[in-house]
Amino acid sequence: MAANDNNILIEVKNLKQYFPVGSGLFANKFLKAVDDVSFYIEKGETLGLVGESGCGKTTTGRTILRLYEPTAGKIIYDGVDITHADMMPYRRKMQIVFQDPYSSLNPRMTVGDIVGEPIDIHKLAGTRKERTEKIIQLLECVGLNSEHANRFPHEFSGGQRQRIGIARALAVDPEFIVCDEPVSALDVSIQAQIVNMFEELQEKMGLTYLFIAHDLSVVKHISRRIGVMYLGKLVELAESYELTFHNVHPYTRSLISAIPIPDPAVSRKKKRIVLEGDVPSPLNPPSGCRFRTRCPYADKLCAEQEPELVEVSKGHFAACHHLDRVAD
């Protein structure tokens, strides 16, 4: 999808992640969580990934970090194929911030030890004093202070815990962070604090993000480009402005029209494209285009043939057989 460019930090080619389900006789059944997804992320940019629950966005993020072993496809980090590489050196470069700030921190460890663990594993501090200094510096970097190092996670609010999770990810001085729904569990007023912090850290440390969320308003705010996923497939990928205002895929259209706008005059006028039915089970996805069961434009072709991701304008990709009909 992308030309060979040294500006690209991460490239994913035809990534597939199938999970075996059932046991005994049924063990040969697979849940295709991510099915043939390709994209790249440039250095210092934020790529947003949106979609509804079960669309495979989280799995994509985790597979890139090799928290799951990919079924097929390639993951290329900074020009090196890491699909089967030893990950230890790469863990210093690639980190993750999890969705749930309540369950992703060990309740028995102090905040200092949580943030210090990656420092210990990668032997980034020579002396005890150096380690403590590093931890304090990290905590201050995310808006906490040195007193917090001796406390336990349960003493903190959701927003503060998410800050601890971010400090832990920053401990190894990474280049790339997968942010897996980092603000979904937070209150609105706290959400903005964390989103701003992600932006400031990116500016300061030149980080590259893969920002996964179901809330398109947040993703649009933080990302330069956005990919939309549906049932394990990437259906549209474009720059955020382009994707929000000139989207072409019928799923993206309905997704965007379904988002309530916090402005009464706008939302009263707005016509929603309400989709029929539910997302089909990924265990048994529809043939051809996976969106066809809920798509107002679907016809025979959609059932028979899977649409390819094609470039509709520069840097804007979409997978649909009927782009010409959807456009107007």
Partner: peptide, 24 residues
């Protein structure tokens, strides 16, 4: 503060969010 802290999908330009400081 609440209104300023939510990202707006219908805004074309990138506006910085203004969070409410502190904790609940």
């Amino acid at each position: 503060g609440l209104l300023k802290s939510i990202p707006k999908l219908n805004k074309k330009e990138h506006e910085k969010l203004v969070p409410i400081k502190g904790v609940p």
